[in-house]
Structure formats: C-alpha cells, structure tokens
Design a protein around this nucleic acid. Structure first.
Length: 578
DNA sequence: CCCGACACAAAGGC
DNA sequence: AGCCTTTGTGTCGG
C-alpha cells in the first residue's frame, strides 16, 4: 500500500527545494502557484476547475509528484560476483498538478513520465562494458523499463494507453517496454524542448541526451559485455512515456463521494533468455513481468518506484472551468515586459451560444489575470525556448550567465538522426524589456567567439540575418543588475537559443514541400526513436470523417507490425495489454 | 451517467 | 510571416 502524502516533499518533485515564485490572483484567490525547478524551469500548478490554460501553453508542462522506491525484486551482480548498485531516475513532466495537498490529473489529458537509470559507483560507459546476472544466476541480456499503474483501493493494475501526436488519427497502444542503457535523466526543460521536435538540427542537439551509439563506447569491451547484447544501435538512454492517458474504461470513483486513487509505477527490469516463472501474487511485482514469444525472452522486474496517490478527474463538466475565457499565455506576449490586461478575447458569439445551449452557467465573470511573471517588479523570470543547461543564475551574486554553448560538429558528436551532411549551430540572444531582442547584447558584443565557420544553408532553413553570427563556440557573461538596478529587471528577461541547420553537402535541386515529407511525429517519435524517423507512414486522411478502420487500436491480439515499421521495434519486445 | 467521435481553437514548430 | 501541428476541452449522440 501507498503511504500517504509524505513524499510530497521528496526532492524529486522539487517543491520543497523550489523557490516559490508567485501566486497569480484573481477574484477567486490563488489560482496559479508557480515554483522554480532545480534546472531553472518553472512548474505552474493550477486547478483546471478554476482556470483554463491554452493546450499548448508551456504552463501545461510541470514536474509532477516524485517517486519513491519499492523493495527490490532482485539484486544484480557483475562477473566477479560483486553487487552492482542500480537506481531508477523517474520523473513526471506533464499532467499532474499539486492542488490542495493532492496530486490531480485529468482523464482526458496527456501526462508524461520519463525515466533513466543510474549505476552509482560505476561510470555508465564502464557499466556497459561488463556483464551482469541476477541474484538467481540468470544472465542479464539488457535492461529495460516499464510503465504501469495501479488502483490503490484494490491494488489492481489498470491499463494505460499511449497516443502519437496524431492522437485520434493515429494508433493507440500500451506504453511499450523501453530497452535503455544507463544515463543521467535530462532536466525537465530538455524534455519540454524535445517534446515536439521535427527539425533535424534540433533533434541532433538532443541526440546525446537520449541515445547511446554503440561505437561511442569505444574499446576495452569484454566479449561478454552487456553492450553487445543490446538489440539496437543507437540504444535509448531515456525511456520517454509521452502522451500517456489512463484507459478510458477506468472507474474513477469508489462512491459518489470517494475518489479512487492511483499510483504510477516505473519498473526497471532486464530481459533474460527463455520463459521464466511468473511472480507470486503477494509480491508487488506480480504481473509486472512479461514473456515475449517473438524473441523467447522474459522481462524480469528488478526494482521499481511509485508515485504517491494520484486523483484522476473525469469528464464531468464540474471538473472544468465554468468560465468562458481562456487565459492566454503566449510567450511573445511577455517579450515586451509586463503583459496586457488579457481577459480573453472570447471570439465567442458562437461559443456563448454553445455554452448557453447546455445550461446557462455564470457566463460573464471576468476571470484571468495574465501570467504576469513579474509585473509587480518582484522576481525576474527566465523564459527560454532553449536549453536551460546552457544558462545559470548565481544564487549569491545574481549574475546571469550563458556559458559554453557548445556547437558540435558531426565528427565529434553523435547525431540525432545521425547525419554527416549537416552542422548544428546555436545562436543565443539575451533580452529583457529594456533590451529588446533587436538590440540584444549578444549582437552588440561578440564575446569569446571562437573561429567562425562558413557553411551553406540548406533549403529547409534558409539563411537569415542571423547568419552573420555563426560560431563554433559562444560564451559570455552578463551581470544582472541585482541591487542598484532593480527596476531594469522588473520586467521579463528572455533567453532565446536559435538552432539552425546548415547543410554541408550540395543542396537538393528542388525543394520538397514539407507536406510531402514523412511526418516524424507519426510513429518514430512516440517510440522515442529518432534514428528511424524517415519511415513510410500513410498520411492521415484529410477528410473530416474518419475512414472506416482508419483508427486502429492495438489489443492483445494486435500485432505492432501491422502499424509500425519493424525497425521501430528493434530494441526489444513490448507488451500490449488491453 | 458514461463513452467514442468529431470539432474548435490557441500556442508552438518550422 | 504564415502556415501546419499539437493538445486541452466543448459538444453531440448512442
């Protein structure tokens, strides 16, 4: 059984250690509580019964409840019989808000769980060069993770479903078992930034966070190294479960009053050869193992972590904001200092009518402040569409700094989709309202700029006026006016990193319209497999009516190869439990 | 009341 | 700058 809310202050969730930033008020009181995450990004928790935030607002990303370890199912040993420490690093990055001491999710909305695993005391690369077995002597072929959910009231597993970015127009499937190598978990902001990337140069930038290329492990590998057993190359380093929902069939209420509560489980296991016995019912790992017939291998759970109790709100209108207005949170609204009044434009004769058609709510309550991150001149807020790991704020001096924006060449960095023709470059800007982007200090001063490189543009990303600022490495420091100069910072500071691809080879003779290219979001992305992003997949119908059978649900009898390019499944079997 | 399906719309990606 | 995507959620109807 779950303990209760004690782990709310687990460091994983960053609430305790987080600096509380601010609360946005409206007539109803505190609506949005914003915390700064360890990486500088923000987690804004809000009650969807009270305020409606746009679907693509960055406020929909937030670190959810932390995970706590469950008693392990196995220990693992190396070839010398020594115990190898091993630890999951899971995190929820979308879908759960902390409201009135409860973690709240929505049945209709996506959530995101990411996890990697760490090998304390052993370098991740060194780890891959050795061989391991379970404490029962069985040889470990490779490691993998599984995502599961339980209802706490009856301790039964419940189904989860995953969509592609195409949602209804694409397939649904059970969250797969992801084969992964040990790695550090990328920061929350990285997961945000990587969540809907199609641009090749941007993907390349993220590649090293998410993939290990076998050739990068180098020499010194034992013949029996676990590396050699991994069934794919590149090997995932992070299991990303994005666009996950609880199965629509789950029952949310125990009684009319009492919510059922749920817990998400992240399991680290390994694949071993052959069929192995099931796990007894009394074990928390019962039914978390999985035998795969195709490969004649069994996924054996080693250890897992669980969330505190989660409450899932259903589709009832009572779980949604009764107001008509949407809070706009578009980033550009903040680029010029404090946001306008906002109060949404409800274009809405149409909408009002729709609303009233049902039952007249209280239509004219003026809601919505804006997300005035610092309109009152309090704490300056960083917004970024770049990578937070490239900037930092000194807690003592208040110095703001962007450092070591590394630009990797294809010879030294493993590619995202591995390509040898393109170079991935970054251009950084700094701005606050007193320093508009156009006058960015970056453009005024070129600091520590190493040798410029000259490359041709490709057709997808034409050269623009930024081109003159191409560098291999950029770094500079900017002193934040901390004391004397507070006014200047009483407005929003914005960091932007622009990622540009320059094609070294001859550009194609004819530009291919984007619509004609394979859609990288279709399948490969949902499988976190950027290395095979260019598979054939029929474009969704342009018709508004769904084609009969065009939406396929994978079930226990479903075969993934019906839907997916086999290359996407090359990293091991997955389970389909519906 | 539930759910599948379709629809709208706002912010992000390119 | 303007299109195309993605995703929260409004709505209908079985």
């Amino acid at each position: 059984m779950m303990e209760d809310l004690d782990h709310l202050n687990d460091e994983n969730i960053n609430i305790d250690e987080n600096e509380f930033l601010e609360t946005l008020d409206n007539a109803d009181g505190d609506v949005i509580k914003t915390f700064r995450n360890a990486d500088g990004s923000l987690s804004s928790h809000f009650d969807k019964r009270k305020v409606r935030i746009a679907p693509r607002s960055t406020l929909q990303f937030k670190i959810g409840p932390g995970f706590t370890p469950v008693v392990p199912n196995h220990k693992i040993l190396n070839d010398f019989g020594q115990i190898q420490e091993i630890k999951l690093e899971p995190r929820i990055d979308r879908g759960f808000d902390f409201i009135d001491d409860d973690w709240i999710g929505y049945k209709r909305n996506y959530f995101t769980v990411v996890t990697s695993f760490d090998t304390p005391g052993t370098d991740h690369i060194e780890f891959m060069k050795q061989a391991y077995h379970l404490d029962n002597g069985v040889e470990i072929k490779y490691f993998a993770t599984k995502l599961a959910a339980k209802c706490l009231e009856d301790d039964k597993l419940i189904n989860l479903v995953q969509h592609t970015a195409k949602r209804d127009k694409g397939p649904q499937f059970a969250p797969p078992i992801h084969v992964i190598a040990p790695a550090n978990l990328p920061k929350h902001q990285i997961i945000r930034d990587a969540s809907n990337v199609r641009n090749e140069s941007k993907m390349k930038k993220f590649d090293s966070y998410f993939f290990l290329h076998k050739e990068d492990v180098g020499t010194g590998c034992e013949v029996r190294s676990v590396l050699a057993n991994y069934p794919s190359d590149p090997i995932k380093k992070v299991a990303r479960y994005e666009r996950i929902q609880f199965a629509s069939s789950i029952t949310l209420k125990k009684t009319s009053q009492q919510n059922r509560r749920f817990s998400l489980l992240v399991v680290l296991g390994c694949y071993v050869k052959g069929r192995h016995d099931g796990i007894q019912q009394s074990s928390p790992y019962h039914e978390l193992d999985h035998y795969d017939e195709e490969t004649d291998m069994t996924f054996v759970p080693i250890l897992m972590e669980k969330t505190p109790p989660l409450i899932i709100r259903g589709r009832s209108p009572s779980n949604y904001c009764q107001q008509i207005k949407v809070m706009h949170t578009k980033k550009s609204d903040f680029d010029n200092g404090s946001p306008q009044e906002n109060d949404l434009d409800v274009p809405a004769d149409k909408k009002e009518r729709k609303r009233r058609g049902r039952k007249s709510k209280q239509p004219d309550l003026k809601t919505t402040a804006n997300v005035s991150h610092d309109s009152a001149g309090r704490i300056p807020t960083l917004l970024t569409n770049g990578l937070p790991s490239t900037f930092e704020i000194s807690p003592t001096s208040g110095n703001m700094r962007i450092k070591n924006i590394q630009l990797h060449s294809s010879s030294t960095e493993t590619s995202f989709p591995r390509g040898f023709q393109s170079e991935s470059l970054s251009v950084a800007y700094f701005s606050n309202s007193a320093t508009p982007i156009q006058d960015s200090i970056f453009k005024k001063r070129r600091l520590n700029i190493s040798k410029p490189v000259v490359l041709e543009s490709n057709l997808e990303e034409p050269l623009d006026d930024i081109t003159e600022n191409i560098f291999n490495t950029i770094s500079f420091e900017e002193r934040t006016p901390s004391k004397e100069n507070k006014e200047r910072l009483s407005s929003t500071s914005v960091f932007l990193l622009k990622h540009v691809t320059y094609d070294v080879s001859e550009p194609p003779a004819v530009a291919i319209p984007r619509a004609m290219l394979p859609n990288k979001m279709e399948i490969s992305y949902c499988l976190n497999d950027y290395s095979s992003s260019f598979i054939e997949y029929p474009p969704p119908s342009t018709s508004h009516k769904r084609l009969p059978g065009s939406r396929r649900l994978l079930t226990a009898s479903g075969n993934p190869s019906d839907l997916l390019n086999p290359a996407d499944w090359s990293d091991g079997p997955s389970i389909f439990r519906h």
